[in-house]
Nucleic acid binder design. Structure first.
Lengths: 155, 155
DNA sequence: CCTGTTAGTTGCGTAGCGCAACCTATATTT
DNA sequence: AAATATAGGTTGCGCTACGCAACTAACAGG
């Protein structure tokens, strides 16, 4: 186990803080959830989420600035703007799913709808979990924080 | 694919919104990150995170109210209060790790320190990913949202 | 009893959020 | 062409949340 002082140095530069800078504001996660569920247009987000228009406008700008959504003007109808997930945005799916599964287990109590399934088997995905390099699912008591330099070379 | 109207109904009662109600405030994730890294006391959180004392006080109360941390008075020194993760709180680890890994990949660009390892092999954990029931790692194009009722019986 | 530590609370100013109304550019209808 | 509708915002205003520094209460150790 690392000592407290060592942790403090390291916590300050942790990437969680950086990530929250990009997606930690009140509505950002819910907007992204909408995007993953196929919402694309301003009015869709607004009416679906019930968010205030100015806040939605502001959050969309920020998400675009952070490269999480991209703003695609519609060629056919020049009033329309489509907001689409970038690769960076799509890569937030594990965060959203972890949060959703936690909510299902501890808050709503029931598996919610719709369900995310493997397109092939059409069976629901597994719960998100922490895995060792060999694939074993790990609990907190099987985990340990160590300094990068102390990681032994891979076997 | 489900149609837009169907999604709207379902999005409102999604557990992500409920989860954010509990842990979505500005400092909550950073406090939890601290807790996972072994912080327990008010002053530890305060000096490590640099959070304002009133906000910290308020967030701790809320996290305790939500059953994510528990408030354990110290028997030896009755000034001291230890804040410890409950099972519910510990179960947020996948969320924190997903967020951290996303930050590492897309923001800081480098794997950060300290590193979470499997206590047995002492090798770093795998990236968090979405898996099918049979264990295959799935990308977004291999995934689909369907209504719970349309899930076929397990093979 | 005096000093330091722990865990807060209070007061006050700033930043972020929510609501409703308004605005601009483009489409559609008549 | 004029009138109306639609999409994507912006503005003004009030309220809530947040940040900072100072203060407090309850202990602990000498």
């Amino acid at each position: 186990m690392l000592d407290l002082e060592r942790h403090r140095e390291l916590l300050r530069q942790c990437s969680i803080a950086a990530a929250l800078e990009a997606v930690g504001e009140r509505w950002s996660f819910l907007i992204l959830r909408g995007a993953f569920n196929g919402l694309h247009h301003f009015e869709e987000f607004q009416t679906t989420l019930g968010i205030a228009r100015n806040i939605l406008s502001n959050r969309l700008v920020r998400l675009v600035e952070n490269g999480i959504l991209e703003r695609v003007p519609d060629a056919a109808d020049r009033r329309k703007v489509s907001y689409r997930l970038t690769d960076k945005g799509r890569d937030l799916l594990p965060v959203l799913l972890s949060l959703r599964q936690w909510g299902e287990r501890w808050l709503s109590g029931k598996p919610s709808n719709p369900v995310l399934v493997d397109r092939l088997s059409r069976q629901p995905i597994q719960p998100m979990s922490v895995r060792a390099a060999d694939g074993r699912v790990l609990g907190l008591n099987e985990l340990e924080w160590i300094d990068r330099s102390e990681v032994p070379p891979a076997p």
